[in-house]
Design a binder for these strands. Structure first.
Length: 304
DNA sequence: GCCCTTGTTACGCC
DNA sequence: AGGCGTAACAAGGG
């Protein structure tokens, strides 16, 4: 029997139009609720990468006229990249999982954001602050920057990667062959295929970018919470209905959290990830465990 | 000043 | 061969 948990009171009304739009990946970023004010924002998972994609989309057609000296750890091929980029045109900005892809014709620049990477396009900072990251945009943490001269003329736009912890990477022609299908594109049939043969805990498997691309710690915890499945469950023990449930919750969840402002805005929000917190669905104590060297939060009652 | 945080990769083991 | 578990990395903030 399929387990579909109740939405917590007051938090889960859906309207038809919202339902429709949240299944359209092209509109995901446009759903961000403007003017939200929070002291932290989500870690760079699929939703944040999608916000960066939308922010950078305005540079398409523009010409790259400058690249500032870059942090060699974050930009391992900095010298080659600088000479290769100069004078090229931004052809397209796309996303696969958590990776942002900037097509400049001769090659593709891949941006991975690690834990604390942020992309700031002009004056637009899609994510003012990250959970576990510094609270303000600080030039000290700039690791890569290019200047784009817009196609239509007008003032040049700077595109800047800020990352205090330096786990972000700017790569030339990144190898995407190891990435699974984007989480936005996954349905029940595909998810069942991707999970087949896996034996580890479902939480670790869903976070594996080879299986499905785009889900990180916060999104996986939220998805399992919504689906009523314990993070420790061996993947091979999941039945067809449970896999269907995961797939059915996935895209609506991404749409809803995008609308609320990011990965941290789940019903199981970052504010709840501390000792003594109670499940917003049934009031049972939330449980904290380490799974695959990551902190998993789940409900001790309704996640089985 | 120790410990927390997570995305990704490297590596040893089975 | 390939899945799986663990460690390491980075570094600001609590």
């Amino acid at each position: 029997m399929r387990f579909l948990p109740q939405r917590p009171p007051g938090g889960g009304e859906t309207d038809r139009q919202g339902d429709h739009r949240e299944h359209d990946v092209e509109h995901l970023a446009s759903m961000v609720h403007d003017g939200h004010a929070s002291h932290t924002d989500g870690m760079p998972e699929l939703l944040e990468a999608e916000m960066y994609r939308a922010a950078m989309a305005r540079t398409v057609g523009g010409r790259i006229v400058a690249m500032a000296p870059a942090d060699p750890l974050v930009v391992p091929e900095g010298a080659a990249l600088a000479s290769g980029l100069l004078g090229t045109q931004v052809r397209a900005v796309t996303r696969r999982g958590k990776v942002l892809l900037v097509d400049v014709g001769a090659f593709v620049v891949g941006l991975r954001f690690g834990m604390t990477g942020r992309l700031i396009v002009g004056e637009h900072d899609p994510i003012p602050a990250l959970a576990y990251g510094p609270s303000a945009s600080d030039r000290r943490f700039d690791r890569w920057e290019v200047t784009v001269s817009p196609h239509q003329g007008g003032a040049p736009v700077s595109v800047r990667l800020s990352d205090p912890r330096r786990l972000a990477r700017v790569l030339v022609d990144p190898d995407l062959s190891g990435l699974g299908p984007d989480a936005m594109e996954v349905d029940g049939t595909l998810l069942a295929q991707r999970l087949a043969g896996r034996r580890g805990p479902i939480k670790s498997v869903l976070m594996d970018q080879h299986v499905v691309a785009g889900l990180g710690n916060l999104l996986v915890d939220e998805l399992l919470w919504r689906s009523g499945i314990a993070p420790t469950r061996p993947t091979r023990d999941l039945n067809v209905d449970e896999i269907e449930c995961l797939a059915a919750e996935l895209r609506p969840m991404l749409g809803e959290l995008m609308q609320r402002g990011g990965s941290h805005r789940g019903d199981l929000s970052v504010e709840l990830r501390r000792a003594g917190a109670l499940c917003p669905m049934d009031g049972a104590p939330l449980q904290r465990r380490n799974i695959g060297a990551r902190t998993a939060w789940s409900c001790s009652l309704h996640q089985r």
